[in-house]
Amino acid sequence: MDNPHAGHRKRLRERFIQNGLEHFQKHNILELLLFNTIPRQDTNELAHRLIDEFGSLSGVFDASIEQLMKVKGIGENSAVLIKLIPAIGKVYLDDKNTIGTILKTTSESGNFLLPKFIGETSELVYLLCLDNKNKVLGCPLICRGDIVSANFTPRRVVEAALKYGATSVILSHNHPRGFALPSNDDINTTEQLYETLRRVNIKLLDHIIVAGEDFVSLADSGFFYKKL
């Protein structure tokens, strides 16, 4: 028996091949994606159901596999495929930020760090390690959890900076459910870390907080009591 939805699927694929996702509605993007795991069923209704459930296309991609599988019509294969999209996007963008890049401005540093937090629903702390010419030596993950959790210690930051031979560093963490504004804990931890790193001749240049596609530099915003 012929697939009654084959014509629609073919037209949608041809639109993508010719023009990418330009002029695609959000549910059309999910439809096209779900063609790969649901070969015969009409995925239009399912795409609408997903967006209704999670509020937006980004909300669908940010949902966990368990949450996705609670939506009628979404099995494990479809849930995994949906979660692959932000994960691949993160790796793709991060891969373009190569070791050896020279970061001259706050904007360049923030844009270098943004991909590391794509699709993350928990707080992560990264340390951007630089040499004396602001060339990137590495950007290791310091911990999962906020900067006042038991997982984060100044010692771990110092050890990472020394491991990469950094002369200066930029601390960065995300606020996955809020705004890119520093809390009092963020500011206090930054000041303490500045002093700790200074004792081993490593300069803390900045602390960049990320929320979605936005980021805030504590140094540029005047939150440091010291001029870094």
Rank of each mutant, 00 (worst) to 15 (best):
S78F: 04
S56T: 03
V91N: 02
L68M: 07
S78R: 04
S56D: 10
N77A: 13
M69I: 08
A63Y: 03
V60D: 09
V60H: 12
V60F: 10
E53P: 00
A63H: 08
I88E: 00
L68D: 04
Q67N: 10
G55V: 01
Q67M: 10
P86H: 03
V60E: 07
L57R: 10
S56Y: 12
Y92V: 08
E66Q: 13
V60L: 11
A87D: 14
S78P: 09
L84H: 14
V80P: 01
I51E: 12
E66A: 14
L57T: 03
Y92C: 05
I65V: 15
G73S: 07
I88S: 02
N77H: 11
K70H: 11
I65L: 12
K90R: 15
Y92W: 10
L57F: 06
I82D: 10
V71L: 09
L68T: 00
L57M: 07
P86R: 01
A79K: 01
I88D: 02
I85R: 03
A87R: 12
V91T: 14
V80R: 14
A87V: 09
F61V: 01
L68N: 00
D62W: 06
K72H: 12
V71K: 11
L84Y: 13
S58G: 12
E76Q: 14
A87Q: 14
I65Q: 14
V91D: 12
V60S: 07
M69D: 02
G55T: 07
K72W: 05
S56L: 08
I88K: 02
V71F: 13
K90T: 06
V60R: 08
P86D: 04
I82K: 01
G73R: 09
I74K: 01
K83H: 15
G55C: 03
I51G: 10
L68C: 04
G75D: 07
I65P: 05
K90E: 15
I85T: 09
S56E: 02
V60C: 10
G73H: 04
V80T: 06
V80G: 00
F61K: 00
I74L: 05
S64C: 05
S58Y: 10
I88C: 01
A79N: 04
I65T: 15
V71S: 12
F61E: 07
I74F: 00
G59A: 03
E53D: 06
I85L: 02
G75S: 09
K72I: 05
S64L: 06
D62V: 00
G75P: 10
I88H: 00
E76H: 14
E53I: 00
K90V: 03
L81E: 12
G75V: 09
G55N: 06
L81I: 05
N77Y: 09
I88V: 14
V71Y: 13
N77L: 05
N77D: 11
K72L: 06
M69Y: 04
I82V: 14
L84Q: 15
N77T: 08
G75F: 06
S58E: 15
